[in-house]
C-alpha cells in the first residue's frame, strides 16, 4: 500500500533534487545581465530557483495533507508486474540486442497471463521481433542495437 502523501513527498523530493542540480550546474556557466547580453547560466539558474522553491512548497503541503491511500496492494502488484519486466527488457538490450530481448520480453509478458498457450505466445513474440527487424532495418535502414550477443555471432 502506498499513501497519496508518500507519492506527494517522493515527487517533491525528486523535483527539488533536480532543482538543486540545475542551480549548481548553472553557476558554472556564469550568471550576468549587462550590456554584453545575458549570461548563459542566468536563465537556468532562475528556473533552478523556481523548481527548488516550488518543490519546498509542495513538500510542506504534501506533508500536512491527509490524502488517504493512492495505491492498494493489488494495484502495486500489477504496477510492478509491468514496470519490472519493462526495466529488465531495457537493461538486457546491450547484452542480447534489441531483437532477442524483444522476443523474450513479449513472450514472457504474454505467457505469464496464461490466456494464450506458450506456443502461440512464442510464435507471436518471434513474429513481432521479426516484423520490427524487417520494418526498421530493411525498409527504413534504421539500425537497432544487436548487442553483445550479436557481435559474438559476428552480426
Amino acid at each position: 500500500m502506498v499513501s497519496r502523501r508518500n507519492l506527494e513527498l517522493i515527487t517533491a523530493l525528486l523535483t527539488g533534487a533536480f532543482g538543486v542540480a540545475v542551480i549548481i550546474s548553472s553557476t558554472e556557466n556564469g550568471i550576468s545581465w549587462s550590456e554584453e547580453g545575458v549570461g548563459s547560466g542566468t536563465f537556468p539558474f532562475l528556473t533552478g530557483l523556481v523548481i527548488l522553491g516550488g518543490s519546498i512548497v509542495n513538500l510542506v503541503r504534501g506533508a500536512v495533507s491527509e490524502g488517504g491511500i493512492a495505491l492498494h496492494a493489488p494495484e502495486v502488484k500489477r504496477w510492478l508486474g509491468l514496470f519490472v519486466p519493462a526495466t529488465l527488457f531495457v537493461a538486457f538490450i546491450p547484452l542480447l540486442g534489441l531483437y532477442v530481448s524483444t522476443a523474450l520480453y513479449v513472450f514472457g509478458s504474454i505467457a505469464v497471463h496464461g490466456v494464450w498457450s506458450n506456443v502461440k505466445a512464442a510464435a507471436f513474440a518471434i513474429a513481432f521481433a521479426a516484423a520490427v527487424y524487417i520494418l526498421f532495418e530493411w525498409m527504413f535502414l534504421v539500425y537497432l542495437p544487436h548487442g553483445w550477443l550479436g557481435s559474438l555471432l559476428g552480426w
Binding site: T15, F18, G19, V22, S25, S26, N29, G37, V38, G39, S40, G41, F43, P44, T47, G48, V50, I51, G54, S55, N58
Partner: peptide, 25 residues
Amino acid sequence: LVALAIGFAIAAIGIDTVSGSVRLT
C-alpha cells in the same frame, strides 16, 4: 510552475546557441 520550470531546464541542457558553452549536462 514547477512543471513549467523543469521543462525550461530540460530544454536548456546541451550546447547553448548564444554562448556556445555546454550547460546542465
